[in-house]
């Protein structure tokens, strides 16, 4: 023990500090990393907007590809826009109820420590980590070769109606893929709701289900919306899962039934980049198609970011 009483250290001025090189280097390097990422993002977006904007026209997005798929002056992307929109909307119809109900179960009913809850959580985490091409294989192995063929066996005898790639199978495959996105976003918004609100409702004699339906869910709506938008944006750009489950290289007609195949924006980008006989000639239409796809996905992302930011601000005020 330092028994030398009142030997407080002698006065040292606060200013005797040299230039802090380590601090400068560290902040510089991490700042540079941040800057580089943003710069790459801007280069990609700028490149596509600049080169794609030049060949984008109203005619391009409102006509089909009847004559020459690789010529920007003749071809258009309407069938692809319709195909992508259809598969994504259908997917939303499948995934939203399941995802929201799963999130409700996890936040409102499940005991957070129970083994079963842990298994659901790890299943959701694992689902989020499954490669998209494996979803494609799953769609083919399960929806088409198993469900589809059995459906045909029962409904159509020897005809093949459901046992082949189709709009509905692509949508279902994407729904399985985006389930974690919806669950996570919904759960976040449900957890942010103060438990006082639930208790107040229960104290008034409402049942748990009434409380969830009338108090909890309306509050969670922005979160559910964010989840849906993120799922749509994720699914809209995915190509690997629909390669074997529904996308078509070329279709003369627009899809009208659930069992039809469809043309798709992302898949079309892939075809234009890799199957073109003359890449220089294809370049304009390729850029224009990419621009349409990017506008769709990035716009959805930006909307999701804003909805989420507003939701978080509102919830902070509530608490």
């Amino acid at each position: 023990m330092s028994a030398t009483a009142s030997t407080a250290p002698a006065l040292r001025p606060f200013r005797s500090r040299r230039f802090d090189l380590a601090s400068f280097v560290f902040s510089g390097l991490t700042g540079l990393a941040t800057f580089l990422i943003i710069a790459i993002l801007l280069v990609i977006l700028g490149n596509v907007i600049y080169s794609g904007g030049a060949s984008l026209s109203w005619r391009f997005i409102t006509s089909g590809t009847e004559s020459d798929m690789f010529d920007v002056r003749k071809a258009g992307v309407l069938p692809m826009i319709i195909g992508t929109t259809a598969r994504v909307l259908l997917m939303t119809i499948f995934v939203l109820p399941v995802g929201v109900i799963t999130a409700i179960y996890l936040t409102e009913y499940a005991a957070s420590t129970s083994r079963f809850t842990r298994v659901i959580r790890s299943a959701i985490n694992n689902l989020a980590g499954v490669p998209s091409i494996v979803f494609g294989l799953f769609g083919l192995g399960f929806f088409i070769n198993f469900i589809g063929q059995h459906l045909d066996g029962v409904l159509h005898g020897t005809d093949t109606v459901w046992g082949k790639p189709a709009l509905v199978w692509a949508s279902l495959t994407l729904a399985v893929m985006t389930l974690p996105v919806v669950v996570v976003a919904t759960e976040e918004s449900l957890r942010a709701i103060p438990s006082g609100l639930r208790e107040a409702s229960l104290a008034l004699g409402a049942t748990k289900l009434q409380t969830i339906a009338k108090i909890v869910l309306p509050q969670a709506l922005p979160g559910i919306l964010t989840g849906a938008i993120l799922a749509i944006s994720r699914a809209a750009g995915e190509v690997a899962p629909i390669l074997f489950t529904g996308a078509a290289y070329y279709m003369a007609d627009l899809p009208t039934r659930l069992s039809d195949q469809f043309m798709d924006l992302g898949y079309h980008v892939f075809i234009l980049s890799t199957q073109s006989p003359d890449i220089e000639k294809t370049r304009p239409i390729l850029y224009a198609t990419v621009l349409v796809l990017l506008l769709l996905t990035i716009a959805l992302n930006v909307v999701a970011i804003f909805v989420r930011a507003r939701m978080r601000r509102n919830l902070r005020m509530l608490q």
Binding site: I37, I40, L41, I44, V48, S132, S233, A236, G237, E238, V239, A240, G266, Y267, V269, F270, V290, L293, L294, T297, I298, L300, N301, V302, I305
Partner: peptide
């Protein structure tokens, strides 16, 4: 995080 919004085909 917007980078995640760019589809892999792009």
């Amino acid at each position: 995080e917007l980078l995640a919004g760019i589809p892999s085909v792009v």
